[in-house]
Structures are given as C-alpha cells and as structure tokens.
Design a protein around this nucleic acid. Structure first.
Lengths: 341, 341
DNA sequence: CTGAAAGCGCTTACAG
DNA sequence: CTGAAAGCGCTTACAG
C-alpha cells in the first residue's frame, strides 16, 4: 500500500501542493470551497501527513524518551502509567527503555534517544549510575531533561523527588514509637542517592532516640530483590535473635522477610515488627498486612512530565529555562506488621 | 545548541557531502585517508545523523507501537518488559500506549501510531474492542501487526495466545480433583474472547465431571478488579453458603476473594478452595499461598516481537507474509489455597 | 486567494 | 576514488 501524499491530492484536484497543505492546516487564506474539496478528498483517501517529513521540517518529533531501571516494578510501572497518560494528553508519545540497573545499558539507551532526537528525556538512574558522561552529554546538547526518584544531586536539571531522609526517619521513628529497641535496616546498594539517604534517615532516628547505632544491624542488598529479603531474614534471626524491628529499603524486600518469618513461625509484629517503603499494592493483602511508606508514584510521573513540558516549550521558543526541583510528600501507612496488639 | 550536519563536516574538510556520508557508512569506495579524517571529525563534533532525515529517506523509523490495556498489571508489565528488550536487541524502539480498557482511547491511539508511521504494531485489545474499524484500518494499510492474549479471532493477523479454554478446564478439573462440588466462576466481562473461553472451559470441566451447571454460580466482573473479588466473596458466601470452590478470571480478583475470606475467618481451602489465573508475583507470598494458572507472559512478549519482526522484514522487502498463530503452554501451579490438608 | 520555490538533512544512482 | 544532482514529503516566506 502506497501512502497518500499532498502531491497526489494536489494533482487530483488540479491545484498546488502549497494550497493543499494550507487547506489541511486550516490557514485563513484559502477559499472555503477549495478547503472543503481538499479536506473531503483527504478523508476519502485516508490521507495522513508523513510524520517523517513533518519532523524534518519542524525539527520536533513530539516524542519523549523515558529510561527507568525496570517496568515490572510496582513503583516504576505507576510512574510510567502517569507519564504515558500525561504525555498523550499533551500530544506527545513516549519511548520507554529499561536499564535493568546496568550503567552500560543505560549509556547505550541515552545514545539511542539522542540519535532518535526525542524532544525530551525523563530518567530514573540505575543503581550503578552517577553524574556520568552520558548524563553530561544530555545536558551538553541542551536536551530538555528531568530526573525523578533515583537522581544525581550534582546534575543541573529539573528533578522530582521525595525527602528520602525524612521519610526513612519517620518510618524508623514509628518502629521506635511502637517499642522497638534493636532495629535492623536492610538497605539498598551503596551507590544510589536514595539508598544513601534512607540509610542516613535510619541513623538519624536512632540518634535522636539515643539508641546506639550498630553497623552489624545494617544489611545491604545488591539487587533489592525478594530473595534477598528472604535470605537476610534467616541471617538476622540467627545472628541477632534480639532484633525486634526491621526497616527495609522497599516493600519487595520487606515481603521477603515477612515470608521467611511466616514460614518459620516468627511472629510479626510480636517478635519482630516490619516496615517497608513505597507501599506496593500487595502489602495491603499480606498476612499480616505490611506497614509501609507511601511514595506518591503517580504524582511523580505527573510532575515529571509537567516539568519536562515546561522545559520543552522554553527550548522550542529559544528561551532560557531554569531547572526546578519538586519535592513530594510521603507518609507512613500503618498496618498490622508494626502494630503490637 | 545547533546540531552538526553532514554539510558542516564536508565544508570543514573541503570535501563533498556525498563523500562524508559514504565515509561514515563505511562504503568501500572511499579512500582510507578520507574515511579516517571524516570519522575523526565526526567524533570530535559529536555528530549523530539526523534521524528525521534518515526516516524520510529510508521510509522506516525503526520504531514500533505497543498498545495494552494498562501497564500497572503483573501480566502486561511482564510482556512489555520482554517486548522492549527484544526490540532493543534488534534495533527497534517501542512507543507504549494504554487503552485503559476504553475502545475510544484505543481507536485514537491506533490513529496516533498510524500517523507516526511506526514500522509495526503489537496490541492486546481492551475489553470493549472487537474487529472494529481501527483494527481493520491497520490491516488495510498493510502495517505489520501482531495481537497477543486479548485477541479477536476474526482479524487476519499474527497472534500469540494461550489455549484459554483448556487452561480454564484444567484449573476447574483441579478443583474437582481436590473434592470441590459446588464451584463458582468469577468471570471477566462478556465481550473479550479470553474471558469467554475461560468461561467455556469452566462449563466443560463441570460437564465432563457430571456436575450440573448452575448459572447462579457465575459472577461477572466489569473491571476485573481487586475490589470486585472482595465484594463478590461476601455475596457468594451469603447467597451460596454451600460453595466449596472458586475459579477466578485472574489472580487480582482471586486475591480480593482471599482477602475477604481471611478478614472474615472463612477457611481457605477447608471451606472454600480458590484458584486464580496468570500466577501474579504476590500469589506466592499470600496466606494461604494462592494456586493459579501459569501464563508465560515473558515468552508471549518475546514471541510477539519475533512474529512482528518477521513480518516487518517481509514488508520491507515487498514479500508476501502469511500471518501465523503461536499458542503457548500453560500449567496449574498448585499451592495452599487448593490443597486440603 | 493561489502557487513557485527554497529548504529541512540525508541517501544513492550515476557520471567522471 | 570523488562529487553533482535528484528526491524523500512536508512547511512557509514571498510574489503575484
């Protein structure tokens, strides 16, 4: 099937390409009669403008790129959901790529998006990434750019974040309020900013409450996986039978702990209370229901796109844009896993 | 920041655009010396070809479109994950859109993708969709097209499916094997093919085992949501206290049932056994762990892209392509919710 | 109100 | 080995 072009319509009607183009774009300087003829024929022939040519002329593709660690993840899929919908409402399509937490893949993907000449890029960094060359290249090329959640503080660009230190502090404070005295933190990898910040929040809460910090009570995930939570649970209960509270970097890991404890008849929260992070859907249907920190994933997506749109508009009009940082609120969602009867 | 073009490189080196283009594409008829000079300068200037111009010339965008009901869904996010990764390996990017189960949105999205001139489209239909005009338009335009999971039988295109009738039959047969005699089916909406097929599988299993079919034991979801499962559970236990088994259209609904039963001290599986569908991640961590039908989501994504790629290659070379249907295997995953002690 | 012409940045058949 | 030229399908400043 050959695609219909302006030229064909013009030939069929015996008028110029210029006039056809103007008629379809509803320019005021085309007679009503010509306009109607053109629009009718275009409809009959199922004409749709060749976006490749339009892109080349207008120098924009009305497409943005989105790189996240992985889509099969409660938090990220919710952000993706919001970004896709917001973008569509504003006439943009979204190309999605997954770094799978690999810096190497992420670099390649940034390159792909730059080559593709997307109008803007939204990103949440992989666990291995920092202010690396590929990020600098986005900035150097002056491509509208927003980072969310897993960000790098040194990069000058718009950001949508939560206050991970404060959120973690509040989660641990809650454990302490319910009577916990020996609190484990299962943290994320050493590199990502949010895993560092949650760790700091944990330490600050201990300090504030005059509970001595014990480095042996900190366990570090590599993958931030269910299986790690499960394995750490066994290790914790063997190495530190006196532990009475656990703050996990994310619900998935907390669920691993909870599953091990359930399987081995360790009472939650009577023996050990557990609180996770991000409030995954499943947390509310587990037994016991898991306490967690609510992270506004949908709103993060909405705000990320809104900031990117602002910047894309400035960029298009050649105006200077000053990056902004939006910080969203979090709160503790208290459920059975931390409420001692 | 202005983008570097072939022309600028050519001017700087005092050679023609043609030669620069050829050098960068490693044509054999360019001298090694010229080639080196061009490649070096291109690198220094961070040259990357303008994909808009390349698309226009080559008439392909190396981009495919993917429309699914929603990305925040265990099954679909796994398929998306596989499609993105397979596409990237083969040099394609993926634009993702969500119909949110709305036919109207889906139609608009198909139009967007056609206008965008993606090289191919992969789709899983919304609950409201059939062999409608927008689907016919894809076929009419001869755009490479694959449907997976939620398909329409009448459309002539490649498909990746499971045998929903057989899978449902086996699930219900399992309930019967464990001693269930009054079995409820919480089905999906009336329109989608897979919800019809699972319903037929349910009926066939009853028939085969000489259990009379009772239309009152069939409950119909509108949204296929957790809340519906939860509400139906209360209704079922009130209207039919003798029910001893439930087969739900998907795990999310089964989890709603399970949650209501847990909250109200109805023993699973002693009083009522439950089996879901699709084997969502959370099913293995619930109490009791939920039995389900394993649906190979990742493999569905891999196969969908593979079929699309086949068709895109034929399309590009002007060859005729005969659509194929790939049927993947399912199996029962038996867990605590159906194993009577 | 209509249209000829230039140009977006590339690729490639063709001539030399 | 190198390059002039046509053309992909559109948009738009300009002339009439």
């Amino acid at each position: 099937m050959k695609d219909i072009t302006l030229k064909e319509i013009a030939t069929k009607l015996g008028i110029s390409i210029t006039t056809v183009s103007k008629a379809l774009k509803n320019y005021p300087d085309v007679s009503a009669k010509t306009k109607k003829a053109v629009i009718d024929l275009a409809q009959t022939l199922h004409y749709t403008p060749n976006s490749f040519a339009v892109n080349l002329r207008t120098k924009e593709s009305k497409t943005i790129g989105l790189i996240i660690p992985e889509v099969v993840h409660h938090f990220f899929s919710n952000v993706v959901n919001a970004i896709i919908d917001e973008a569509e409402k504003n006439g943009y399509l979204v190309i999605i790529l997954q770094s799978n937490e690999s810096l190497e893949l992420e670099k390649k993907q940034v390159e792909l998006l730059i080559n593709k000449r997307v109008d803007g890029i939204i990103m949440s960094l992989s666990n291995e990434s920092n202010n690396d060359d590929h990020i600098k290249e986005i900035i150097r090329r002056n491509i509208p750019f927003v980072m969310f959640d897993k960000i790098n503080k040194l990069t000058t660009c718009s950001k949508v974040i939560i206050n991970d230190q404060k959120a973690a502090f509040n989660a641990v404070q809650h454990l302490i309020d319910t009577g916990c005295k020996r609190i484990v933190h299962i943290r994320g990898p050493l590199n990502p900013q949010n895993s560092i910040d949650r760790y700091i929040g944990y330490k600050k809460a201990l300090e504030k409450n005059h509970i001595p910090f014990d480095a042996k009570l900190v366990y570090t995930c590599e993958k931030v996986a269910f299986e790690e939570g499960f394995a750490f649970a066994r290790q914790i209960i063997t190495e530190h039978p006196d532990v009475d509270g656990i703050f996990a970097i994310t619900d998935l890991v907390a669920v691993g702990v909870l599953t091990y404890f359930n399987d081995n008849d360790i009472k939650i929260p009577e023996q050990v209370a557990i609180i996770g992070f991000s409030n995954w859907f499943m947390s509310q249907v587990l037994t016991p229901k898991l306490s967690s920190v609510e992270q506004p994933s949908h709103e993060m997506g909405v705000q990320s796109f809104a900031l990117l749109l602002e910047e894309m508009i400035c960029h298009k009009e050649g105006l200077h844009y000053t990056p902004r940082t939006v910080e969203l609120q979090t709160c503790n969602i208290i459920r059975e896993s931390t409420v001692k009867p």
